[in-house]
Design a protein around this nucleic acid. Structure first.
Length: 575
RNA sequence: GCGCUUGUAGCUCAAUUGGAUAGAGCGCCUGACUUCGGAUCAGGAGGUUCUGGGUUCAACUCCUAGCAGGCGCACCA
């Protein structure tokens, strides 16, 4: 039940009826019509801009139009009063029956409350993380991983289908260097050869462990000639590091539905096929890329090469598909990968990218546009950098020194829940400060515990009454008189479907932790009123609780639990 | 140089996507524990929303020109 949506529709019907009686003129569409909560200082329950948006076409002042619409709307039995306020807002006060209706709705179907029933159900593919399989995940990967996971959860909450995929970049130079590193570690272990200091190699200790695992499982391989065993060793090494990555993701509570190998697509000739497909549509040509102006590129080699016309779709320049040695560029195989996504007939594709890949968005969306003939088939979300702060100072990670924080370190130190909650609490396109000290702190400085504490307090009420918070409550007549302080919280609860709708439409999960924090805040405030006013306490002097208070508490705890489930964070009953 | 992105209270950030007097937390000041859990709460101080121009009933939000920070810029992935 979404009160705002209900009244949006009611207002549409009302003005439609007025227009049929020739009392007002309606524009072609009412897309700018809004129905939402008025600011704090206004006492009404809902507010609409209807008379302002009709003002121009009717050549009447919003105040005058407001009078006509007000009269019509007052026919609604649930409206008790309407005030017209300059510059022309209609502020509507509802009868308390509406809050009972809302409470009833939540209690009868707690896990459906907030689901956007009207949106068309779609089939999504979301690609996220996709870190190179050359080692465990570090903190930088973490934010995008959580973002992708929670966007999936929001869509699933709204009854969409979601397929979560990880693209494994197991093809190209990085993998060759990684395989070499593993090879050299094997030789180090077998023949006591010193591991060289080459900037292209991967020096991390985990490579030693990977080498040990491979040696143990494959004792018969001849480790004397790299070229002979490179293909086999490569697949073994990638398998090992994927195992590490999966363990990392598991610690964060993330599980992909599929790990798609890049090599597999190359070997199946998918790159060739997709380039043929694009050639037929005339998006491929042989040409040259000029060096960028005013940039000192002394080593620029201009040469004839296979290019994709991404400029047709608004990109700065056309993009190379083949390297100098005629092997495919990363972009070429990624186009093949996206073609493979399209072949699986998803309605929408979502990519979660790191900030350093933002410049890549134009060309990949161009390729999807070209292949699908649709616009906005692929939506890319960027997750900005995480600035780590340790001991009050920024912490710089350095791969060469082996001085970087892995997901394992992070989750081990601050925990899965705190990591997820904090990583989500800002819009994804803003840099995020991640202060270890603050995230670990168990106080109001840490919003996670603040919200969890709210749930735990509600649980404690049920515990004290020897009841279970999860037990069903059967009520016949919902005709309670909630106090103004209670209605304030119920109103906050009424906004939950709105939060879900916006988060879902904009793929912006950060609104959920922020909302939950606000809801928890109002609850804590109410709780403390119980110190002065016995009527505000949940358990009365006879050690009992009224039905209206039970329902009130359950409505809050249900929304908190729904929200925390979406974020992927626990709601302990005691802390 | 070009592209993307950010700029809001001393600090870290919100703002129902164009709505009314721009809101929270931290920090600072003053207060509340014979209590259903103080991991909490009540109150106070703190603003030219980076700057200029434009669009309209209405701009933190949209357009435009700047300023400042971040990221990226073929033959890496």
């Amino acid at each position: 039940m979404n009160i705002f949506e209900n009244y949006l529709n009611k207002i549409k019907v009302a003005v439609d009826q007025l227009s049929k009686k020739n009392l007002i003129i309606l524009p072609d569409n009412l897309s700018s019509l809004s129905v939402d909560t008025p600011p704090q200082n206004i006492k009404a329950d809902i507010s609409t801009n209807i008379s302002m948006i009709l003002s121009k076409i009717n050549k009447k002042s919003p105040m005058a139009l407001g009078e006509i619409i007000k009269k019509k709307l007052l026919e609604d039995v649930n409206i008790s009063a309407i005030e017209i306020v300059k510059p022309g807002f209609l502020n509507i006060t509802l009868k308390s029956t509406i809050w009972n209706e809302l409470i009833k709705n939540i209690n009868e179907n707690p896990y459906q409350y907030g689901v956007n029933i009207n949106s068309r159900k779609k089939n999504y593919l979301i690609e996220f993380v996709s870190a190179n399989p050359t080692g465990p995940l570090h903190v930088g990967h973490c934010r995008g991983a959580i973002l992708g996971d929670v966007i999936s959860n929001i869509l699933i909450f709204n009854k969409h289908k979601v397929f979560k995929e990880y693209y494994v970049n197991d093809y190209g130079n990085q993998i060759i260097n990684f395989t070499k590193s593993v090879y050299l570690r094997c030789r180090e272990l077998l023949f006591k050869e010193k591991f060289p200091t080459d900037p292209d190699l991967y020096p991390g200790d985990y490579v030693i462990q990977i080498a040990k695992n491979i040696l143990k499982d494959n004792p018969k391989i001849n480790y004397k000639n790299f070229d002979e065993i490179s293909n086999l060793l490569s697949s073994l090494a990638v398998k090992e590091s994927l195992q590490l990555i999966k363990e990392n993701l598991n610690k964060l509570g993330i599980k992909h539905d599929n790990f798609q190998s890049e090599t597999e697509l190359v070997e199946k000739n998918e790159v060739h096929n997709v380039i043929n497909k694009l050639s037929k549509k005339n998006f491929i040509y042989k040409g040259r890329i000029k060096a960028p102006k005013n940039q000192n590129k002394t080593d620029w080699i201009e040469r004839e090469q296979l290019l994709f016309r991404s400029t047709d779709f608004g990109d700065d320049k056309d993009r190379a598909l083949q390297k100098g040695d005629n092997s495919w560029t990363y972009f070429a195989s990624d186009v093949a990968y996206h073609n493979f996504k399209l072949e699986r007939k998803f309605d929408k594709l979502i990519n979660i990218l790191g900030a350093d890949h933002a410049g890549y968005i134009k060309r990949i969306t161009s390729s999807v546009d070209a292949l699908s003939g649709e616009k906005n088939k692929l939506i890319c979300k960027v997750s900005q950098l995480v600035k780590l702060i340790k001991d009050g100072k920024p912490f710089k990670m350095s791969k060469r020194k082996g001085d970087y924080i892995t997901v394992e370190d992070l989750v081990g130190e601050v925990g899965k829940d705190a990591t997820r909650f904090i990583m989500l609490s800002r819009t994804s396109d803003v840099e995020l400060d991640f202060d270890f000290a603050k995230v670990k702190e168990k106080s109001k400085d840490n919003p996670l515990y603040y919200v969890q504490y709210c749930y735990a307090r509600i649980s404690s009420v049920f515990r004290n009454l020897n009841k279970n918070i999860n037990d069903e409550v059967n009520i016949k007549n919902y005709d309670f008189n909630y106090s103004a302080d209670e209605i304030k919280i119920i109103k906050k609860i009424s906004q939950w479907p709105l939060i879900i709708e916006i988060s879902s439409n904009k793929l912006e999960p950060h609104r959920i932790p922020i909302y939950l924090y606000e809801l928890a805040s109002e609850f804590h405030s109410y709780w403390n009123m119980g110190k002065d006013d016995e009527n505000k306490r949940f358990i009365n002097n006879e050690k009992k609780i009224s039905d209206e208070k039970i329902l009130f508490l359950k409505s809050i705890s249900n929304v908190i639990k729904s929200g925390m489930n979406i974020i992927g964070v626990d709601t302990p009953e005691s802390m």
